[in-house]
Amino acid sequence: MSLLFIGYETEKVDFSRYEKHSLMPESHTQMKPRIVDMGIFAIADSAITTFQGGKTLLTNFRKIYDIEAKVYKPRFAPDGIFQGYDNLYSRHPILVGFAGNTLVAQHILNTISGHLEHLEIGCKERSIGLQEIEYIVNMPCESNDLKSSSFAQWGEDTFLPKDYEGLLTGELLAGFIEHSINHALESAKKHRLNEDEFKQMNTDLFSGIYCPVDREHQIYIFRMKHKLNADGVLVVYTEKEKLPANEIAVLGMKKDFEEEAKRLNYNAIKDDLSSSNVLEDYLLKCIETVSKRGSFEIARPVVHKKLNRYKISKKHID
């Protein structure tokens, strides 16, 4: 079992203290305190246990990972023929974590990395006679008009830096992650899982992203779901869910600790306290509670990571 708390770190800033240093008219400097987006926090235990937490197998197991999305821009020969993708355009650090089956999670994490480590700026395929180019960001597994039109010549007024602005959003990155998870889960339908087998492989994930277009931090939750297809075969899949501002997500032992975690987060925001610090303390108390009842489902050390725009920091609590 696992326990993860994921949420938004905020801070109430009183801008009135800057008024005396402002060159703006007095009527424009009387600003009320407002909540400022300070990033994303993710806190997790590090125990790996047998199924249903009967025994701890090991600790210090990572459940929160740093994954970097890399976007490459196309390179052209002097005559305008596409040459390939070997020029890095931008990097985007992302937090990804899981609660559930560790082998399934590792397969999913590898698939996510494989999809995000070489994103490509391209364009949608154009109809005959249509001259306007619609620029997009492709995953490496997607069809790419630049690659398929190997002998096409592109003008000097195409694929300019201004054309790349605003292409990569947080929602698009979350969509790539959703695709990666579903791609990793596709093979499960070959093995005709039953309900018990689904429970054993059940794994929920989250991603923490800074959107450079909306200039905000975004958290997406990917809970594993299942349904029967037309052939009566159980199909495992996920759909992304964006976590609203000021909310937290709990992965793992939801039934035990979600209600209290949400109450603590609400009160922390109301009282201008750090939600991440409050929930860090609570997760440590949750471990003590579980230990006192003779269970091994979660255990120290605890890992506390934060994403603030393009920087990830880590805290380790033994």
Results as ranks from 00 to 15, higher is better:
residue 153 Q to A: 06
residue 43 I to N: 01
residue 268 A to C: 02
residue 165 E to V: 15
residue 278 V to Q: 02
residue 278 V to M: 07
residue 197 E to G: 07
residue 85 Y to P: 07
residue 9 E to C: 01
residue 3 L to Q: 02
residue 221 I to A: 04
residue 204 D to T: 06
residue 242 K to S: 11
residue 189 K to C: 03
residue 287 I to N: 01
residue 292 K to Y: 07
residue 259 E to H: 08
residue 195 E to L: 08
residue 131 Q to I: 13
residue 10 T to V: 15
residue 213 V to H: 09
residue 35 I to Y: 09
residue 143 S to H: 12
residue 10 T to W: 05
residue 71 V to N: 00
residue 157 D to G: 05
residue 26 E to R: 11
residue 103 L to A: 10
residue 296 F to I: 00
residue 212 P to K: 11
residue 267 N to E: 14
residue 38 M to L: 07
residue 130 L to H: 11
residue 103 L to M: 06
residue 109 L to I: 15
residue 27 S to A: 08
residue 238 T to P: 03
residue 223 R to W: 10
residue 173 L to P: 01
residue 210 Y to H: 11
residue 135 Y to D: 06
residue 150 S to P: 02
residue 252 G to A: 04
residue 92 H to A: 02
residue 287 I to Y: 02
residue 70 K to H: 08
residue 76 F to Y: 03
residue 233 V to F: 06
residue 163 D to S: 07
residue 240 K to P: 02
residue 84 G to Y: 05
residue 81 I to C: 04
residue 27 S to T: 05
residue 230 A to L: 11
residue 215 R to I: 12
residue 169 T to I: 14
residue 187 S to L: 10
residue 181 I to G: 01
residue 103 L to C: 05
residue 61 F to Y: 14
residue 129 G to H: 11
residue 85 Y to V: 00
residue 161 P to T: 03
residue 132 E to A: 13
residue 200 Q to L: 11
residue 226 H to D: 06
residue 77 A to W: 10
residue 318 D to K: 01
residue 127 S to Y: 03
residue 282 Y to Q: 13
residue 224 M to N: 06
residue 52 Q to D: 10
residue 268 A to Q: 01
residue 194 N to E: 13
residue 115 H to R: 13
residue 298 I to T: 12
residue 186 E to L: 12
residue 252 G to Y: 03
residue 81 I to E: 13
residue 132 E to G: 00
residue 18 Y to Q: 05
residue 146 L to Q: 03
residue 257 F to Q: 10
residue 262 K to C: 15
residue 188 A to N: 14
residue 226 H to P: 02
residue 318 D to Y: 07
residue 204 D to H: 10
residue 150 S to N: 12
residue 131 Q to N: 15
residue 175 G to Y: 09
residue 121 I to Q: 05
residue 47 A to E: 03
residue 281 D to K: 14
residue 237 Y to L: 05
residue 172 L to S: 01
residue 162 K to S: 11
residue 219 I to N: 13
residue 244 P to G: 09
residue 175 G to D: 09
residue 24 M to N: 09
residue 86 D to P: 02
residue 206 F to V: 05
residue 274 S to C: 09
residue 234 L to D: 07
residue 238 T to F: 02
residue 80 G to E: 00
residue 220 Y to L: 11
residue 256 D to R: 10
residue 125 E to R: 08
residue 232 G to F: 04
residue 240 K to S: 15
residue 138 N to T: 00
residue 29 T to H: 01
residue 264 L to M: 04
residue 118 H to Q: 15
residue 243 L to M: 13
residue 15 F to E: 09
residue 125 E to M: 04
residue 106 Q to I: 03
residue 157 D to E: 07
residue 278 V to T: 07
residue 192 R to N: 14
residue 247 E to M: 08
residue 55 K to H: 12
residue 149 S to D: 02
residue 299 A to R: 14
residue 195 E to R: 08
residue 269 I to S: 06
residue 270 K to T: 12
residue 88 L to Q: 03
residue 2 S to H: 02
residue 103 L to T: 09
residue 240 K to Y: 04
residue 31 M to I: 15
residue 105 A to H: 03
residue 310 Y to P: 00
residue 210 Y to F: 15
residue 149 S to G: 02
residue 298 I to N: 11
residue 142 E to Y: 06
residue 215 R to E: 15
residue 224 M to Q: 15
residue 150 S to F: 11
residue 46 S to A: 09
residue 45 D to Y: 08
residue 309 R to W: 04
residue 265 N to M: 04
residue 6 I to W: 03
residue 155 G to V: 01
residue 172 L to D: 06
residue 172 L to R: 07
residue 62 R to H: 14
residue 133 I to C: 00
residue 231 D to Q: 13
